[in-house]
Design a protein around this nucleic acid. Structure first.
Lengths: 194, 194
DNA sequence: TGCAATAAGTGCAACCGTACAACTTTAAGA
DNA sequence: TCTTAAAGTTGTACGGTTGCACTTATTGCA
């Protein structure tokens, strides 16, 4: 009658629990007192582990904030690959970018999170680095979509500039307008508008 | 018969000398032994000042590498404002971007410098931050050139994406081709090429 | 000419994030 | 059951950065 459910196994469950406890404690402390006023030692204490253990779960203090990251890339690539038939590459990218912005203004929870990130230079920077790490994957998806070799510099250029659009929007007063201006530029070129 | 030349004054001269000595010592040590293998204490020692003094001249270790920075922005803005009559905004930006890349491959000195920067993640990041700090100035110059208000999001978008082109180029295998691909995109839009 | 204000420079101590090494505990699998 | 490997711990150290109290020297003004 022992539990023979061969699930993730106790070990991995404990690991996942520790991981989650750390991320939760970190986010709570950061939101409470501000990112810079919290030390990794405090977070480790709050989750009742040592700082060494913390750093085995998260490579850096910033990484504690941006946990769920793999999903981001998946959703980005899916936006290109699974777009409704008939819609162009650029409009899919534009829609996805706008969607991300509008989503982050949606719930109060994510709004607080955004405030935390944008109010902390170190986090803004880290987010940018993470975000741009998807450049290659996006370039590949674009190349595949077009049926051109991956080495085509036009794909790399579009991937880079399309992703940068998000970075541009975040510092802008009106993010949605900024995204649209940038995508108009990418879609039709500079002369078209004026 | 005392020297009545009211130049920069002895004090500021000494300050400038210390500043220069620090930057020189730092660059020499970095090129010799690699950025990460040199401590700020060593640099301060080499220039015969305390680390506290060093950090009053340069806000961080990275800043020791990128001294002459104001000139960069001036040259960027000049490229827009003083471009040959008849040439378009975009071709001026393209030419300036290409010029910067070709220049850095010119002398052995600057090639070594580039190798130092590109071989050190912390410096790549810092350079990018510095470079993008000119975004606002460029956007203003563009707005002035077009005779539109500074708040026009199209100007901010072009400034951001045009500057990012340099960042894109640096990681690319063929930087010049990458720049051209990106500027083709900005100039004529995505559809035009394919 | 002399004096007060200012700023460069110093020394010290501490903090924080991060890395490493040696050790203990605990679960998994043969 | 026994071996093995991973998770976690403890302690220690390094390097960049900051703050404070202090000294020295230059400058501008009375």
């Amino acid at each position: 009658m022992t539990t023979t459910e061969t699930g993730p196994g106790r070990r991995e469950r404990k690991k996942a629990a520790t991981h989650q406890a750390l991320a939760d404690a970190a986010l709570r402390l950061f939101l409470d007192r501000g990112y810079d006023n919290v030390t990794v030692r405090e977070i480790a204490d709050a989750a009742d582990v040592s700082t060494t253990t913390l750093l085995k779960h998260f490579p850096s203090k910033e990484a504690l904030v941006f946990d769920r990251d793999s999903e981001v890339e998946a959703s980005l690539i899916a936006a290109v690959e699974n777009r409704p038939s008939g819609s162009s590459l650029l409009s899919a990218l534009r829609a996805h970018t706008r969607g991300r912005i509008e989503y982050s203004a949606g719930s109060k929870e994510s709004a607080d999170f955004m405030k935390l990130v944008h109010g902390t230079p170190a986090l803004v920077e880290y987010w940018h680095k993470m975000w741009m790490r998807h450049e290659h994957a996006l370039a590949r998806a674009i190349a595949a979509d077009l049926g051109v070799p991956e080495t085509d510099p036009r794909c790399a250029a579009l991937a880079h500039l399309a992703l940068e659009t998000s970075a541009l929007a975040q510092r802008a007063g009106d993010p949605v307008r900024a995204v649209d201006a940038a995508f108009d530029l990418l879609e039709h070129g500079w002369r078209a508008g004026n």
